[in-house]
C-alpha cells in the first residue's frame, strides 16, 4: 500500500471517530436549516461600519465590565450599539437615528420590542448569548435590519 493510501485510510478512520466523539448536534443542524426562514427580500441592510473588537482597540473596560462598541449604517438608519458583559450578564445600550421603532430579533426568529426614548436611546438587559440583530422601521416605513452580531 502506498503512503498516500495509508494516509487516506487513517483520515477515514479519524472521520468515523469524529462522527462518534464530536458529531454535529441535532440543534445545530436544525438551526442551519431554519436560518432560511429569516430570509426577507424587502429588508434593507444597515451594515456594520465599525467594531471595537476588530479594530485592534484595547478592550474597553471599566471595573469588571467588558464592552464592545459597534456601529451600523444603511437604508437611512444609523445604530450605535454598546454590548456590555458583566458577571456573565449581557446588556445592550444603544442609540438609533432614522428609525421610529425597533425590535431585537434573535437567530431563531423570536423578537422583542426595544423601547426607544425621545432621543432614540435604548437599553435591553438580560440578553442571552447568540446571534441577534436590530430590526427597525426606517424612513418612509422601510424595514431596515442591522447585520447579525453574536454576543
Amino acid at each position: 500500500m502506498s503512503p498516500d493510501e495509508d494516509d487516506d485510510q487513517l483520515l477515514e478512520r479519524l472521520r468515523q471517530v469524529a462522527a462518534e466523539a464530536d458529531a454535529v448536534p441535532e440543534n445545530v443542524l436544525a438551526a442551519a436549516r431554519a436560518a432560511f426562514t429569516m430570509r426577507d427580500t424587502d429588508l434593507e441592510l444597515a451594515r456594520l461600519v465599525a467594531d471595537s473588537a476588530e479594530a485592534g482597540f484595547e478592550p474597553v473596560r471599566s471595573g469588571a465590565v467588558a464592552a464592545r462598541l459597534l456601529a451600523f449604517d444603511g437604508g437611512g438608519v444609523q445604530v450605535d450599539l454598546d454590548v456590555e458583559v458583566a458577571g456573565g450578564r449581557t446588556v445592550l445600550i444603544g442609540h438609533v437615528s432614522g428609525a421610529d421603532a425597533c425590535v431585537l430579533e434573535r437567530g431563531d426568529g423570536s423578537r422583542q420590542l426595544v423601547p426607544l426614548d425621545e432621543l432614540g436611546r435604548f437599553l435591553v438587559g438580560g440578553v442571552r448569548p447568540g446571534p441577534l440583530r436590530l430590526r427597525c422601521r426606517g424612513p418612509a416605513g422601510r424595514t431596515v435590519a442591522t447585520s447579525w452580531v453574536t454576543v
Binding site: A32, L45, A145, W148
Partner: peptide
C-alpha cells in the same frame, strides 16, 4: 455552545 452560535451566525449571514 460557541461553535453552535458561530455556525448559526454564519448561516444567518449567508441568508442576509
Amino acid at each position: 455552545q460557541d461553535a453552535a452560535d458561530a455556525v448559526q451566525t454564519t448561516w444567518l449571514r449567508l441568508v442576509e
